[in-house]
Structures are given as structure tokens and as C-alpha cells.
Design a protein around this nucleic acid. Sequence first.
RNA 1: GGAGGGAUCGCAUAGUGGUCUAGUGCGGCCGCCUGCUAAGCGGUUACCCCGAGAAAUUGGGGUCGAGGGUUCGAAUCCCUCUCCCUCCGCCA
Length: 418
Amino acid sequence: MIDIKLIRENPDFVQRSLEKRNDTFAVGEILELDVSYRKSLQRQEQFRAQHKKMSKQMSNPSERSPELTLEMRRLGNEISALQEETSKTRSDLEASLLTLPNIPHESVPLGNDASDNTVVRTWGEPKTFPFEPLPHWELGEKLNIIDFQRGVKLSGSRFYVLKGWGAHLQRSLISFMLDTHVRDHGYREIYPPFMVKRECLVGSGNLPKFGDNLYHDKEEDYWFIPTAEVPLTNFHRDEILDAEDLPLSYVAYSTCFRREKMTAGKDTRGIKRGHQFDKVELYKFTRPENSDEDLEKLTADAEDICQRLGLTYRVVQLCTGDLGFASRKTYDIELWAPGCNEWLEVSSCSNCGDFQARRANVRYRPEPGARTQFVHTLNGSGVALPRLLIAILENYQQANGTVLIPEALAPYMELRQG
RNA sequence: GGAGGGAUCGCAUAGUGGUCUAGUGCGGCCGCCUGCUAAGCGGUUACCCCGAGAAAUUGGGGUCGAGGGUUCGAAUCCCUCUCCCUCCGCCA
């Protein structure tokens, strides 16, 4: 959420910044709501103060009178009418504020869409093969480790089953990534709930605008997380963190659930885009002055996974038009997949500034006795699984149709299975 | 799912309709005293919103798990919900 005070004091800046996202937003409307909210709030508080004084008089039996009682009743009615008006305006204002995306960081390059993103760096070279490399869906079926038909039988389109060595590989990757981030990058491991309350999705920025991409149990009002970023953002909701604990770095494995109904027909081949996938997520709560630097660190931590696995990747900086709703600055990490011949997004590392912290009300106290302030939050996959699996299968395939195990995974793959 | 008990300013607790501007103890912080430490003494100790001010500050309002109701007036009475505890049922 954008600070209403910033909008109030600098509406042109906010308007101009949001326009960089190549979309339009009702900043003027919000300003009007803000004015009328504060006007009716002030009137209400004035009446309340008066009412309070009279009430004090009433507490003394000798000052009680039928006239005073009557007057207070009248005032009381007036206050509740005003109260209704005030809270209506306030919730309208809040609802509007919740639909505004974050303000892009001034360093983010201008652009309309993904085609304006810029490659920041590339690690490794796209691998060349003395034979025609197969796409993972063919490798998966040949090796009998990915079962598309049974996935559809069990759950419908965009579901698949990993079998034997394939399932084992995924499980090993999860352990490898968690171990690496905990042992070598200083993150604390979290196992979060995969179903959360509505307000968690509001805190992370998925609601109210993007509900159509989420699975929801209406009976119990549980929401299935589209990423572990959601429970992690809300882990410290309504808390005031100790300044000396910052930055707090968390790593969480979770399954993720997404409807993906807008892209029916696209990316249907293979395991690139499903309704359910696994992911290891990195998350940081930082002091505002450190968040830019911490984004570089977090991105490097995700990149390190790709490097240890010997996979070619590139880091792409998103332009203003392609930035996610909650993000002010984002780097995507894309792995090269020689079989399907494309760069696969396996991580999106974002600095959300105080946007999510404001929504989830996560604060800290910079100095003892100082006013509380919102922290900055960062997130990024470290990294997403099906696509990592794709990259390993396609990069490590051999002429005879087998797939080698990356050296870093060897300790995790000692169990032999078909 | 059933029955009962509970939720108060970091922690513990008091408060059963107006004097609550929520008391007290502990802990924390500041100061005094003091060879040192402990003790003692004094002060201080939440969060949010609106207004004034360049600022330090300052005026007002709100918050006793959440929301509604009764009343001139609610921490206190009534209703609904959430969470926690005990027991029963059911399970991994």
C-alpha cells in the first residue's frame, strides 16, 4: 500500500510514478476521498469531545438533570450517524488504496512490457550437444519419471505425476536448496501453512485484485497459497520487530497453487506451468536503508543454486511496465533449457520496499524511544522446482537418453531407484 | 463435533455501570545515592488516527481479543465471532 500521506503531499509524483507502469490509476479520486474522510472525522471527534465532557458532569449526581440527559442522547445519535459516514468513507478510501500498485524504484528502466526488460548478466554458455537435445517431456516419458496421462486422470489438465527417480530428484533438490540457504547463506528455515486466511493475501498484495488466480475453500474461507511469500510476509504481521534482529532472513519450502486460467492453451506442454508446483522461497525483512543492497544479496543467493548445479542462466531486470504489483524493483533469473530451447524463469527477486509491510503492518523501532517505522520486505524464489527439473533434465541429458546427476546433488541421490 | 473455563497497557495481576485520565507488582530505561555490586530513593515505561508547529513539542479522538447491542454513560451487562486452556468424541 502506498502511504496516503505521500499521495496527499505529493500527488503528482505518485501519479507520474504509477504511470510508468503503463496503466492508469485514480489518484485524484483517492485525494477526494481522503479530504472528505478527514473532514467528517474531525467533526465526529469534535462532537465526541463534547459528549465526553458532559458525561463527566453526569458522573456527579448533583449535576444530573433531565435536560442534560436529553441533550446527551441527541448528541449520541448525531455521533453514531457521523461515525457511520466516517467509517464508510474510510473503508472506500482503504479499498481504493489497496488497488494501487507499488511505486517503481527510480533506478528501474522505463518500458511497456517484457520486451523492454534488460539482461543484466549471463552465467555460463548455452550448452551445445553432438546430438539433437530432447525436450523434458520426451525425456521424462522415456525415462519413465514423468507421467502426464495419470496426472490428467487424477486431477485434470496441467497436472502430472513424478515417479521413481524423478520424484527423488525433486525431493533431493528441495533438500539441497534448503541446506545451501541455511548453511551457507544464513537463512532460517520455515515450514509454513499452505492454506491461509484472507487477510494474509491482502498483506502480500494478491488480494483484492488478483483473487481469480487463487484457489479458495469457500466453506472454511481458507486460501491456498500461490507462493510461500504469502505466509512469510504475514509471519510478523502486526508486530514491532527489534531493530537489532534485522535483517531477518527466512527460507521456506512450500507447494504452490495457482489457477492459471488466463493462459489456457499456452505452455501446456510439459511441466513448465501447472496448477500445483513446489518452490523454495527466500524472504527478508530489512531496514529501509539496506533493502537495495539486500536485494542484490538475495538475488546472488538464488543464483548460487544455479551455479552449484552448473546450469547456465541469465539475470534480467524487469522494466517499469513488467514489474509485479507489490514490487518496486525486480530481477528475474532464467535458466537455459536446451530441449525446449528457451530461457525459463525460475526466480523473481523483488524489493517491495514498505508496500507489503504497510499492508501487513510489520514495523520496527530504528532507535530506542524513536517512532516505529515500516520495514522493507524482499522476496525471491531460491528457486522454483518444475523448471529447475526441466533445466537439469535437458542440460544433463546424454546421447544414449540417460541423464547425469549434477555433482552437487550426488550426496542427496544415493538411494537407487528406477 | 459436544461440555466447561478464559482473553486487561512487555510479563503477572486488580478492576462487576460514572471517582478508570485503567491501579499494583515485576521487568526495562533515565537519574540520585553509593569504594564496586546489590539494595534503596525519585522519575519514566503501549499503539493508531486527526489538527497546530520548521522542529523539539503540543491540542483532540480511538484502542481492555474482534464486531454488534443495551444505556445519558460499558473493561464491567447482553448477543455473535475468533483464539487459547481442560475434558469427551474422532482421527495422522
